[in-house]
Every structure is written in C-alpha cells, then in structure tokens.
C-alpha cells in the first residue's frame, strides 16, 4: 500500500517544526547543532504557506502519473512501483530544473547551490518522515493512502 503525507490544516499553527526537522533529518550528522555547520546546508523539503488564515504544509505528494518524471531529461526521477514513491537519483541528476518547471504544486524547488531539486523523499534514509513524527500538534500524518 502506498503511504503518503496528509495534513490536518485546522491543527497546523505554522510553527515550522516540520521544516526544521526535515533539514536536520537530511543533514549528514542528523543533529541540529552540528547540522548548521555543515558545508552544504540542507534546504527544507516541506514548506508551510498561509492562505486565508489557514496554514498549508506543502511538499511532494509522490504523484502516480508524475509530471516531473516525464520532464526529467536525465532519468533521475523514476517511480518505484513497490514503494509507490517518486525516487530521485542524485547521481544521475544534472540540475536542469525541468522538474521544478512542471510540478503542478510547486512542491519541487531548486537548490541552486547543490544544483539538485529539493523534494520530499519520505525520509527514505531514516525510515519515517520526520515532519510527521515531530509535528507538535499532530497536523501532519503519514498513513496509507485513502485514494485520490
């Protein structure tokens, strides 16, 4: 089953804990005090944005028919049929920004310094999305997909 991130918008207070733990979780040392000293500062793959008094954490939703996969000229983006996730291969990526240009949610941003797209990988390295784990109001939920 495909797991995805869901957001209880009523509970989100825009504290940005998700952004912070996302950066730490994707740093080399995985510890805040040391992560900020790393040469390549990691950018958050989730960003909270407000509209009409509500807060929306915006991040990649791992679309099944992902436009970013179609647009990728280097085949760095692929769909993992078992995990049902969009996978990004840093080694293959050339930083052309095609994926940024086509993401219908603006959920892929350019990391101009690292020349790679910033997009959610469900914390593949750690095993569970840190944003969902750390959200103080439980506004971010990682659960089985309920269907589009």
């Amino acid at each position: 089953m495909k797991k995805n991130l869901y957001f209880d918008v009523k509970k989100c207070m825009a504290c940005r804990t998700c952004e912070l733990v996302c950066c730490v979780g994707h740093s080399l040392v995985k510890e805040l005090s040391k992560a900020i000293k790393e040469k390549q500062i990691v950018l958050p793959k989730i960003k909270v944005s407000a509209n009409s008094g509500k807060n929306f954490p915006i991040t990649c939703r791992h679309c099944k028919d992902a436009r970013c996969i179609d647009a990728c000229i280097a085949r760095a983006l692929t769909f993992d049929n078992e995990k049902k996730e969009v996978i990004h291969d840093k080694e293959k990526c050339v930083g052309c920004w095609m994926c940024v240009m086509v993401c219908p949610y603006g959920a892929i941003r350019p990391d101009k310094q690292a020349r790679i797209p910033v997009r959610c990988d469900h914390c593949i390295e750690i095993g569970e999305p840190q944003c969902a784990k750390s959200c103080p109001t439980k506004a971010i939920i990682f659960k089985e997909e309920t269907g589009d």
């Binding site: 991130l5 869901y6 407000a50 929306f56 915006i58 939703r61 949610y105």
Partner: peptide, 24 residues
C-alpha cells in the same frame, strides 16, 4: 515572494495535493 500553491489551490478543483489537506 509569498506566492505558493496554498494561494491558488482553489482554482484547480479538488484534486491532487488539495485532497491531502482535508480534515483528517
């Protein structure tokens, strides 16, 4: 500078990421 999907999601109908924002 604060433009984002949150500002325009209502334009596109209730598909995609929009559906991940419903009350859980």
């Amino acid at each position: 500078d604060s433009f984002s999907y949150a500002k325009v999601m209502d334009l596109f109908g209730k598909d995609g990421l929009y559906s991940n924002y419903q009350e859980q």
